[in-house]
Computed example of a mutant assay.
Amino acid sequence: MDGLGTELPQRTTIMWILLAAAVVFLVPTARTARRALGESGGTAAGLWAMSAVMVVLLVVVPLRVARSIQQRHTYLSDDAVTVVSGDDRRTLAFADLEEVKVRYSTRGGSVFRNEKVFLVGRSDRGERTVITVSRYYVETMQPLLRRLAVEVDQRPGLLDGDLERDYFDHALRSAP
């Protein structure tokens, strides 16, 4: 998108896992629906209800989550971070930053490793806003963390205390 800066590369691993899960779960869902065709009365009604629930929970929900991951794009410029999700666009200028928080989790191994950077500040309309940049959506956090390091060096108050500084420094050293 023009004028938004450079897009951080999307992370597609989780999207592909969700798509594969939807395809795999389509098989037992189709079997249940096919079995309902051969039944009558209460048994058929129960099987059709079970098929409907399986379609929603095991096929539609993973597909919708995969779609939302695919539609979310994060852009980094010299002046701001912009997150575009579908038609929604949220921008936070570095000059308007009030707080930076880094959180990370390694539950689920390397595939589900998740670092999050919370950028808290004021939007161009003066409203308090939080933009979250998560490794669930981007392949690498390093460009953002390096840009934030410049801001943090100039304004150490963006990190609230030594613990936040340790989290930030750890993420800067170790994040992919």
Rank of each mutant, 00 (worst) to 15 (best):
A52T: 04
V23Y: 12
S68E: 13
L26S: 15
L144G: 07
I17S: 09
A49Y: 01
T74Q: 04
Q142G: 07
V133K: 03
R107E: 13
V24R: 07
G46W: 08
K101H: 04
R64S: 10
V120C: 08
F118W: 11
V120R: 11
L47Y: 01
D78H: 10
R107I: 11
T43W: 11
R155M: 05
Q154L: 14
D78P: 09
L148E: 02
T132C: 06
L76M: 04
A95R: 04
S123N: 09
T129M: 03
V83M: 11
R147F: 02
P62Q: 06
E127K: 13
S51Y: 00
G41K: 02
Q142C: 09
V100Y: 00
T106N: 13
V84W: 13
A20Q: 01
S51T: 02
A20S: 01
V84K: 15
G121E: 13
V138R: 00
A20M: 01
V138M: 00
V60D: 06
L76E: 05
V27Y: 11
T74K: 06
F94A: 05
F25A: 12
R125C: 14
M54W: 03
N114I: 10
R34D: 03
V55S: 00
R147I: 11
V117F: 02
V59D: 07
L145P: 07
G38R: 00
A52E: 01
V65S: 14
G121L: 13
S68Q: 14
D96I: 06
D87E: 14
G157I: 02
M15C: 11
G42R: 08
R135A: 08
G109I: 00
F94C: 06
T129Y: 01
A149T: 05
R122M: 12
A36M: 01
T74P: 05
G109E: 01
R122L: 15
R64T: 11
S134F: 00
P156M: 03
S68C: 11
Q70W: 14
T140L: 01
R35Y: 08
E151S: 00
R125Q: 15
R125V: 15
L145Q: 04
A30R: 00
D153M: 10
A36G: 00
A44E: 01
S68V: 09
R147H: 04
A33S: 02
T129R: 04
L47M: 05
S40I: 03
V59N: 08
A93V: 13
A95E: 09
A45V: 05
A36S: 00
G86Q: 12
D153A: 13
G38Y: 00
L92M: 06
R67W: 12
V61M: 06
V117N: 07
F112I: 05
K101T: 08
T32Y: 01
G41L: 03
L97D: 05
